[in-house]
Design a binder for these strands. Structure first.
Lengths: 343, 343
DNA sequence: TATTATTTTTAACGCGCGTAAAGAAAAAAA
DNA sequence: TTTTTTTCTTTACGCGCGTTAAAAATAATA
């Protein structure tokens, strides 16, 4: 590797003995040039460590090789984990992921969209805030940039939606809980940031009715994304005041459940499905930490890998076909019951 | 807001009644043009929604308004939380954060560095993998891009280092544990990915010697970043085989401690400083979830806010002064004892 | 009002690369 | 070998903006 600095493609082309337009062609698609030429260029590359200026390249292309990823809250391990997998897949496809977090803030979400639009990404994977999203801003964005919506469904936004089958998942858990003990109380936020929570609430109510049980909602009052704390405080109150009408609690998501377990532990309430336990607690999401709670959390798994894989698959097919999808296919991934110690 | 699409600065300048170079000047620093001109431009901006093409702008600048942030593993809530704060501060300073995660992978770390170099960032905040980093690649990078190294110290890399005072923090915890009960066993990985762990091990050994106690290291064998699992497995073995020489365990970090608590719970070992508990467990980092473990985790807090604030402060001063620092100032932030239920 | 200092306009070049057209060269087919 | 097809080279323009130098306009000062 010679240390001679190459300023631009012109210089590099001269060094490799190939014309600049051909070199340009090579960098856009190595297969598009003759093997003999390719060899020359790649030989030169080994000696001179040149790569095209990314800004100049992107300025002259309608679309870049960038793929934007927006998640609502990256400090939530659920989204961190999904983002990690999506990034890995995107890189494997030869694109460059640009990961942005909205940090739970509507304005930041909008400015993330604007930032991405400027970058002219080939496509965007968007997990919106949900209830607090600026719907109009998102729709505008999706008109201009091919987008796949995942996790939180903003009706009509993007070319496709990949999300959880909240109804199926909720049903499975309720079935399991009722078959193994008392029917569950539903533990959630009154105004959850994420629309999945609303779907889960409704699914709970419907399932309980169908099964002939009386539903009970315990609704936490907090706002924002500090879910463990909200779950903890509300659980402490609910347990202390004996608000629970049954000995079984189904939490709208694992982070609330983690807060619940913490409160129960502190109050000396033994949680679990085993003999001698006075309370059963289940969650929803298969949060990365749910495997290590005390007791380990029975929950519904939403396959991280699958949601990432499917989202990227659809994005790639959109990019290849170079056209928008006429319909808006909706993929709802089934959840899987993860039986652990807590319920 | 008229919907007339503006193609470039030329058109926008014409519409606002100001010359293009002056408009260019305005976008680089609004204060640099006369108030009357500024008013004209801003009036036009309200009607026409134009912003300079980011690629064209960056092509012609030596340095962009981008600030790179690289963390070793974004799915770790510790780094997610720090990244979140750094991003917020960077945005407040009027820069654009570019967050990249190395996902625990040496090659990805190197290609993240290369990606950032292409983007000509004003500066970079780098939390390296540590032991598995490609030291040479990092040093090369730091020669070309003004970088601040944080969390894991790569000796000589970057213009400054901001990290934890592992010695102080470890000492404080050992003092606390020995004053309130038996001296601790140290629970860690044999080959930890992060160099802080080595510092903590050595600090433990030194402190124990100084205090006249016999040290004991319980070393987990795993590799990688799945720390809870590694902690869980090793703790299960250690407890079952009665390997612990005292009733107190000091974990090298909170994620190992979370695994440890999970194992202890499963084995029916009561953890806590209270009457009737047979084991005390302490951690290190004040992980976002340590507040919700069962029992809540006694740990050493490393102030997230401070590490983010200091790192960004130094980066900003580097950018403003437009010169590299002659020394390499090292800031070690003291940890603070967080007394909770586990020890 | 005249003078000086500051800012803006005009005109023009450059950044590094995408891309198009026409002719030359190489490879494939006849 | 000749003809056809494919690929490459040469030449040249354009992308949108940063930046500079000289001339013009404006503001501040005397």
């Amino acid at each position: 590797m010679s240390d001679s600095k190459i300023r631009n493609m012109e210089e590099f082309a001269a060094l490799s003995g190939v014309s600049r337009p051909t070199v340009s062609k090579y960098f856009n698609d190595p297969e598009s040039v003759r093997a003999s030429i390719r060899t020359k260029i790649e030989a030169a590359l080994e000696h001179h460590d040149y790569r095209p200026n990314i800004f100049a390249v992107n300025q002259n292309r309608k679309l870049t090789k960038n793929i934007g990823i927006i998640v609502p809250y990256l400090a939530d391990p659920f989204f961190a984990e999904i983002a990690r997998r999506i990034e890995t897949l995107v890189i494997a496809e030869g694109f460059r992921p640009i990961l942005l977090s909205s940090h739970g803030d509507t304005n930041l979400e909008v400015s993330n969209l604007e930032a991405l639009r400027q970058i002219k990404p080939a496509a965007v994977l968007l997990a919106p805030l949900g209830r607090t999203s600026d719907r109009q801003a998102i729709m505008d964005f999706c008109d201009n940039v091919p987008t796949v919506n995942f996790d939180s469904n903003i009706e009509g936004a993007g070319e496709a939606f990949i999300g959880h089958n909240n109804v199926q998942a909720t049903d499975v858990m309720i079935q399991y809980l009722t078959r193994t003990g008392e029917p569950p109380v539903f533990f959630e936020m009154r105004t959850p940031p994420n629309p999945n929570a609303i779907k889960r609430r409704n699914a709970y109510l419907a399932a309980m009715e169908r099964l002939g049980h009386t539903p009970q909602l315990i609704q936490a009052e907090g706002e924002g994304w500090n879910l463990e704390e909200i779950g903890y405080e509300t659980a402490k109150r609910a347990i202390t005041n004996k608000e629970l009408s049954t000995n079984t609690v189904f939490c709208s998501n694992d982070r609330l459940a983690i807060g619940f377990l913490s409160a129960a532990y502190e109050l000396g309430v033994k949680v679990g499905h085993a003999e001698g336990c006075s309370l059963r607690v289940a969650g929803h999401d298969n949060h990365p930490f749910s495997r290590y709670t005390c007791p380990t959390l029975t929950t519904i798994s939403h396959n991280y890998d699958l949601i990432a894989t499917r989202s990227v698959e659809i994005v790639m097919s959109m990019i290849e076909s170079e056209q928008r999808l006429e319909e808006r296919p909706t993929t709802l991934l089934d959840g899987e019951l993860i039986m652990r110690a807590s319920a």
